[in-house]
Each structure stands twice: as C-alpha cells, then as structure tokens.
C-alpha cells in the first residue's frame, strides 16, 4: 500500500476526489471521550453545588444608593458634626417620683416640693402592673432590635425538639445579653470620680429577679471602696428594672440565687 500511495502523482494527491486513509476513528473516539468528560464535570459541579447557593428563605436585603460625599479636605479644620453634638451629656431626666407630687399644679416652671413625704403610696392595680411589665418587655426588645420577648416565650420547649437540644442554653445567653444591655444603658457614673481612681474601681452586685422580671432585691456584694461609684452601679440596676421575664429554666435560679453583676468603669 505504501508503495502504491507513493506512486500517486502529486497533483492527484491534492484532489478531494481521491479517498485517503485518515485517523478518523481515533479522532472520533477522542472527541466522544472529551465531550463525555466535559458533561460529567458540569454535572458533578452542578450536583455538588460549587456555584453560589441560593437560599430561598433569604429575606430581601434592602439597599439604597447614597451620594458619595466629597471627602473632607485634610487641610481644613474639623467641624463638630451634629452626631457629636448629640453625644454631649443630655439633661438628666428627673427620676420618676415614687410618691405623688405634693404641689399645686403650676404651669412654668414645674416645681417639686422638697417637703414632708405624703403618707402612703397608692396601691398598684393589676392593670397597672400588666402595663408596667409590657413596658419593660418593649424596652428590652427595642434595645436589641432582635426578637420580641413574646417570641422568646414561644421558643421555650418545642414539641418536635431534641432532648439533647441546646436551645435552652442559647435562650439563657440571650436573656443575659438583654439584661446586660439594659443595665449598661443606664450605667451613668459621676464625672466627679477622680481619674486615677477610675482604673481600680470594681463593684459586684447581686440581683434577684422575680418571675415577671421585677427586681426583688439588689445588694452590693463587693464594694468598690468609692461610695459614689457604688451608688452609681446600684442606681444603674434600679433604673434598668424591670427586666423581661426570665425563661423557664432560669426562673428559680434567678429568683433564689440571682445573678452577679460585676461593674468596672
């Protein structure tokens, strides 16, 4: 054969009308294998979800376009921004009187008599009590922006839950987190405390919390040695109360043993 092919005239060799023996079979086999491999790879990639996972439960993400401001000129002097102004110490709110005001209603300015204490505070009605607790719940939920206290209640023990589930622990941690945030917001300390003393101040307070979140008792377990600071941490707990009702598994412990709050400036 090789002799016969070699005898073909070169002009005839270039003609398309002449049949040749080409490595067609090998080409076809290679092509099929290549396509199968490519298809397999794509299928595998799809199967194992190498691409971005689409979470159908994903909540919509709200985005808004804001104008990209001109960057501040580093050579210009700083200006006090409105936010900074807002950070200045606000006027302290007068505390809610424990007793009814004993003064005649005068329009301006509002005066509170520093006179003898009225004899007996009024009894709280059940409706008032409920309102107070609801206010505490709302305060807690607003402070964190997370789930409401009602949702926390609903999460206690799911029917289809696992006996080894740790949701109670998480729930407890969440409760302590809310409690801590609530106290921290009311943690105001007097500027009169000397700076050099601030480094060493530490006070521990034990707080007993009732079933509905009310503070049953707050006691200084360990004094800082500075009466002003001690007063501030006690006031922080009192101002922060009432708290949200504790979860079931913490109720007894918080009512009997309480929780320790360790304050540092």
């Amino acid at each position: 054969m090789a002799t016969a092919e070699a005898q073909i005239h070169p002009a005839v060799q270039r003609s398309l009308l002449v049949g040749y023996r080409l490595p067609l079979r090998r080409f076809l086999i290679g092509s099929v294998i290549g396509h199968v491999a490519l298809f397999g790879a794509i299928s595998a990639a799809t199967y194992f979800q190498l691409g971005p996972r689409i979470d159908l439960n994903q909540q919509p993400i709200k985005a808004s376009l804001v104008r990209l401001g001109k960057p501040p000129d580093p050579k210009l002097l700083p200006r006090i921004q409105p936010q900074q102004e807002a950070q200045k110490p606000p006027e302290p709110e007068p505390r809610k009187p424990e007793q009814p005001k004993a003064v005649a209603p005068t329009p301006e300015p509002k005066a509170v008599s520093i006179g003898p204490t009225p004899k007996k505070p009024p009894e709280q009605s059940p409706a008032d009590r409920r309102k107070q607790l609801l206010t505490a719940l709302n305060r807690t939920s607003r402070s964190t922006g997370s789930k409401t206290a009602q949702q926390i209640e609903e999460m206690e023990g799911q029917l289809d839950g696992d006996p080894n589930g740790d949701s109670a622990t998480q729930e407890g941690e969440r409760y302590y987190g809310l409690l801590k945030a609530q106290v921290q917001r009311n943690y105001d300390v007097s500027q009169t405390i000397p700076e050099q003393e601030r480094l060493h101040l530490k006070a521990r307070v034990i707080v007993l919390i009732g079933r509905t979140g009310e503070v049953l008792k707050v006691q200084l377990a360990s004094s800082s040695g500075n009466t002003l600071f001690d007063g501030s941490v006690l006031a922080a707990v009192k101002k922060a109360s009432p708290f949200a009702p504790p979860p079931d598994h913490l109720r007894d412990a918080l009512q009997r043993r309480g929780i320790a709050l360790e304050f540092r400036p």
Partner: peptide, 22 residues
C-alpha cells in the same frame, strides 16, 4: 448571697457613661 455567689452567673459590665453630677 455569699454562699450562693460562687454558683451564680457573673455578667461583667463596663463602659460607664461619665456625666456631670446632677
């Protein structure tokens, strides 16, 4: 409280807001 203190959870609170004393 002293006996139970060892068993109670402890929350550490810092970051006081220093304000002029009313």
């Amino acid at each position: 409280a002293a006996v139970a203190e060892a068993q109670v959870p402890v929350l550490e609170i810092s970051g006081a807001n220093f304000r002029p004393m009313p």
